[in-house]
Simulated assay, not measured.
Amino acid sequence: MQFMLMINEDESPYAGEGGAALLEATLAGHMKLAEDLVAAGVPFSGERLKPAAMATTIRWDNGAATLHDGPFAETHEELGGFYIIDVASLDEALEWAKRIPVPKGGIEVRPVWPMEG
């Protein structure tokens, strides 16, 4: 069963004093997680996203589309990246999600709804 592990984090710690070192350590943690997934034989994919300030959101209101700068929600946490893993259960997905390095934020774990056909 596939699960998406969405990394929602506050980007501000990376901008402050020590931010570059924190980013380097966080990226190293992601590389270690990827190595561990491979070693465990867990099929996965994932990508890092550019900062939220580079996002554009399309919103619809009764069929009319408007463009907005920035992420879709007003929050301090932004979608920073994701993993899609293929594991046997939600419990296993949660165990992998707990290993994702996030200095400040959270991980949303959601089953993937496969497309039919």
Rank of each mutant, 00 (worst) to 15 (best):
Q2F: 01
N8D: 06
D10V: 05
E11H: 09
S12I: 03
P13W: 00
P13I: 04
P13Q: 01
P13E: 06
A15F: 10
A15Q: 11
G19V: 02
G19R: 06
A20S: 11
A20Y: 10
A21H: 05
L23W: 09
E24G: 10
E24D: 15
A25N: 09
A25Y: 05
T26N: 07
L27I: 10
L27D: 10
L27H: 11
L27C: 11
A28W: 12
G29K: 04
H30A: 05
M31E: 03
M31P: 05
L33R: 07
L33H: 07
A34K: 04
E35Q: 11
E35F: 04
L37D: 06
G41M: 12
V42G: 06
V42D: 01
V42T: 13
V42F: 07
P43K: 12
P43S: 13
F44L: 08
S45G: 12
G46Q: 04
G46R: 04
E47Y: 02
E47C: 04
R48S: 03
L49Y: 07
L49C: 07
P51K: 12
P51D: 11
A52K: 13
A53T: 15
A53R: 13
A55I: 11
A55S: 14
I58R: 14
I58W: 13
R59D: 11
N62H: 15
A64W: 13
A65V: 15
A65D: 12
T66C: 14
T66W: 15
L67A: 15
L67M: 14
H68I: 13
D69W: 13
G70Y: 14
G70C: 13
P71L: 08
P71Y: 10
A73L: 12
E77F: 08
G81W: 05
G81V: 07
I84W: 07
D86Y: 11
D86Q: 14
V87F: 09
A88D: 14
A88F: 09
S89T: 13
D91W: 06
E92F: 06
L94P: 02
E95D: 15
E95K: 12
A97M: 01
I100R: 00
I100H: 02
I100A: 00
P101K: 05
P101S: 03
V102H: 08
P103K: 03
K104T: 05
K104L: 04
G105W: 02
G105A: 05
G106H: 00
I107V: 07
I107G: 05
I107S: 01
E108H: 01
R110V: 04
R110I: 00
W113D: 02
W113G: 03
W113R: 08
W113C: 00
M115H: 09
E116A: 10
E116M: 09
E116S: 09
E116C: 01
